[in-house]
């Protein structure tokens, strides 16, 4: 996969999907960008977050939750395919066909950041999401135990700490997730 990135040939979303799922990559303006596998706490946080979203959204039929392997086609032309660590798509915007990549921007995208994530890369990602209709992004800083809330109207993250709670806003109405509980579950061993 890495060699493809260097040939300079731009791929369509379909060509990108046909590469198979043996690697971890995103497609940005037709260019394959390799992404690294998630660290342990990163991967576990994603699961904890998904669990919360599923528990709230599914009984209420608000929409569906997708894991970090899921391909979202955010742009056509200069094809862009991204996979947020956790994504939620509302029932109203859910594509009828889900066998291939999802042709929609998720309503909520959760991205777990690492200190090495570059400014330009993250900002491009936010731009791609918002252009595709994403209404809410949660940026997770595992080191600082903080979560940055970003919306198209407020693109500078509003950082919340362990004393605060995430609010589903109009994307997941009524959902409240105490941030201390999310990170607390990472720190303490699972209950018997």
């Amino acid at each position: 996969m890495a060699t493809i990135a260097r040939t300079g040939k731009l791929l369509t979303a379909e060509e990108f999907m046909a590469l198979g799922d043996d690697g971890h990559a995103e497609l940005v303006d037709g260019e394959v960008i390799m992404t690294s596998l998630a660290a342990g706490d990163h991967g576990e946080f994603s699961v904890l977050m998904s669990t919360r979203l599923v528990a709230w959204a599914y009984p209420r039929r608000l929409g569906r939750v997708f894991d970090g392997q899921t391909a979202f086609v955010l742009r056509r032309g200069a094809d862009t395919v991204r996979s947020p660590d956790v994504a939620f798509v509302s029932t109203a915007r859910l594509p009828a066909v889900r066998r291939g990549a999802l042709e929609v921007g998720p309503d909520l995208a959760v991205e777990v950041l690492s200190p090495s994530d570059r400014l330009r890369a993250v900002l491009r990602k936010l731009q791609d999401y918002f252009a595709a209709g994403t209404r809410l992004v949660w940026l997770v800083d595992l080191e600082a135990r903080e979560i940055g809330v970003v919306t198209p109207e407020r693109p500078m993250p509003h950082w919340l700490g362990t004393a605060d709670a995430l609010d589903g806003a109009d994307v997941l109405p009524g959902l409240t997730i105490p941030i201390g509980e999310l990170f607390g579950a990472l720190d303490s061993p699972p209950a018997e």
Binding site: L113, L119, L123, D141
Partner: peptide, 26 residues
């Protein structure tokens, strides 16, 4: 990276800095 720099930029903008340039040598 983004985490540290976005906080710094937010501090500037919130304080009323009118123009911020962030140069990326990479």
């Amino acid at each position: 990276g983004y985490v540290a720099m976005s906080r710094k930029i937010a501090d500037y903008l919130r304080a009323g800095v009118r123009l911020v340039w962030v140069l990326d040598p990479e």
